[in-house]
Design a binder for these strands. Structure first.
Lengths: 183, 183
DNA sequence: CCACGATGTAAACATTCGTTTACTTGATTG
DNA sequence: CAATCAAGTAAACGAATGTTTACATCGTGG
């Protein structure tokens, strides 16, 4: 590790950022503590010291990254177009929170953490924003499509989902997302 | 283990059946060889002997279970209704092949296996059956919705997906699946 | 400037995993 | 009935995991 000025807060932040990057690229179970700390250029023991363990680090990383305003701040009349633009943005710099979420499904402890944050940070705000008596069903529709899309983009990467999205598929995604708002 | 007549073929079949059940309930990485063999009431060493290891067992289990005819044998005019009936069948006895598929996403080796079988056993037959120039985009639409649905039924189980499906969500699923055929 | 606490490190620990090895048991065949 | 080889078992192995421990070192306040 390169010499660096000692700074607990900065080191904690380095670990958190590395965790977000790692967990959004690979599944929770597939990312080792040593992978994260190597990425952060930091000693593995510091994960336990600063976060109390891998699971708590995952929760902190997911909690920090999840923000439903990314979706509920969009104009309703262009919801479909813009959400697809966000999801398919090839130049996105920040890690994908949803990918972190779905990558947690293979570990029972991480799954519990992820489910809690999924409800409180995504589905509830979305349902409120959609409104009406079908609010929850609409939130479920959103989650189903998003999850399916991210699965084949990040978790089970099919070649066809890499790079730019096929036009017909893109149109369908836009229409199907927009229909959630319009229905 | 209970005394049982020695029979290599039967033992192999027991292991395969146990693997299908286990892998369709929990993710690949979460299922241990010892879990499977305990379920099959068989010695752990036999997995390596009969299948050459956990990964090959997974491939055999998935390969045996995946059969696109489950979908392509349905009447086109009722595709949506019937596919949803199959997916939401609470009394289903046999393990869900698609759940096995998605559970593989957290292990890089299993992911490669699953991707290969997904293409050859599901997407290609589906695309052929859908036909037309949008065949692949249609197959992708099918996979996105299916995957999203199964994720919240099996992998990240949301309470709302347990038991019977909420009527509005069910209608949407039926219509969205049917639209793939009709478009 | 020196001591002390915060920060970082290296190593080992306990556990779990898939797999292999050496061995025992049992069914079949001549 | 006995011999032989397939079938099954128990135990241990080596690697990888998250975490803890004991120690080193840096920065700072008195």
């Amino acid at each position: 590790m390169a010499v660096r000025k000692r700074n607990a807060e900065a080191t904690r932040a380095r670990i958190l950022a590395a965790a977000q990057q790692a967990f959004s690229t690979r599944a929770y179970a597939e990312v080792g503590v040593r992978d994260i700390t190597a990425l952060a250029d930091v000693n593995p023991a510091l994960v336990s010291r600063y976060f109390g363990g891998k699971l708590n680090l995952f929760e902190a990383a997911l909690d920090t990254a999840l923000d439903a305003r990314l979706m509920t701040d969009l104009p309703r009349e262009e919801f479909g177009k813009q959400i697809v633009a966000i999801f398919t943005d090839e130049h996105r710099s920040q890690p994908s929170p949803l990918a972190m979420l779905f990558g947690a499904s293979s570990d029972s402890a991480a799954r519990e953490v992820a489910l809690g944050l999924l409800r409180s940070h995504v589905m509830r705000p979305l349902a409120v924003w959609f409104g009406g008596e079908a609010a929850w069903a609409k939130a479920a529709r959103f989650m189903i499509i998003s999850t399916g899309y991210f699965t084949y983009r990040d978790q089970l990467p099919l070649d066809e989902f890499a790079g730019s999205v096929e036009p017909r598929l893109r149109s369908w995604l836009e229409e199907t997302f927009q229909a959630i708002v319009d229905d």
